[in-house]
Amino acid sequence: MKTMTIKAVTAATALFGAVAGAQAQDTNYPQQPVTWVIPFGAGGGTDQLARLLAAEADRIFGERVTVENHAGAGGVAGWEYVLDQPADGYTIFNASPTPIITLVSEENPPIEPTDISIVGYLSSYSALLIGGEEAFPDWESFKQAAEDRAITVGGTNSTLLGIANLMDQAGVEVVFVPYTSTGEAVTDYLGGHIDTVATTESTAVTIVPENGRVIVNSSSRPLLPEIEEQLGGDVVDAKDLGFDGISFPRWVGVHPDTPEEVKARVAELVGEVAQDPAVKEAFATAGSPIDYVGREEAAQDYEGLVERMRSAVGLLQ
């Protein structure tokens, strides 16, 4: 019995020592270069922002932060790459909603959209529905028009998802016309080939007011004041209409098995980078202002986001 107690105490001491050692090591994070993984090729929106961010992140992390592109499989290849790396916080994943859309569109996805620990949102974008000023002066007139005839809504998959989620709750039927790029969708809208177009805020400011107005913001998140002002002010959003809208985050996560202390430290550092004045200025001028959401709030939102996207994808297919 005594022997067992001694053994137990020794084991407990050893375990405590190991945990304490690990904690000390964890609080020293980072001690080696960090890889910032983007699941898309060089040149895309997420990639551009990541490179702007990485330029300042070295200073804040105190270690080199290198952007790596792991493209393929609709953004899932990069995600799988992160899951294959050690769960030590040295591989950080930064993505848009694209890989989530890929996973919720698949019958048998290779991984689940929840196979990640969210450490924060850097910024978010909303899907705004834009139409002609005369044809659709407001949301009510749009609803009426949709009852009278089939209204076409063009956009990329993510922006259409946001609109589909809203239309479903509003009981409005429209025809969704998917495009591979925003450029094509907007050109077809400007040419009068489709009635309306779903775009992000940064594209919307190039269309409004000359070539249309914002009929509705399909997210529940109000627009940043300066963007709302550029869009003519008083933009109606999903929340105003009593619906549960979707906004699309540029999210940051780490391997789900990463030790809690490391996750917390990564979240803290990512938060510092996101709040850094130089990064904020770079993101703002790149048309995607930082709208940082901390770890807990982001992780909570993420769960709901996945579910809302899953049901909206069904509406588009």
Partner: peptide
């Protein structure tokens, strides 16, 4: 519809 096709069940062919 964004559904994978002719990929022979290979995820890496999705793009």
């Amino acid at each position: 519809s964004s559904v994978a096709r002719n990929t022979f069940g290979q995820d890496w062919l999705r793009d």
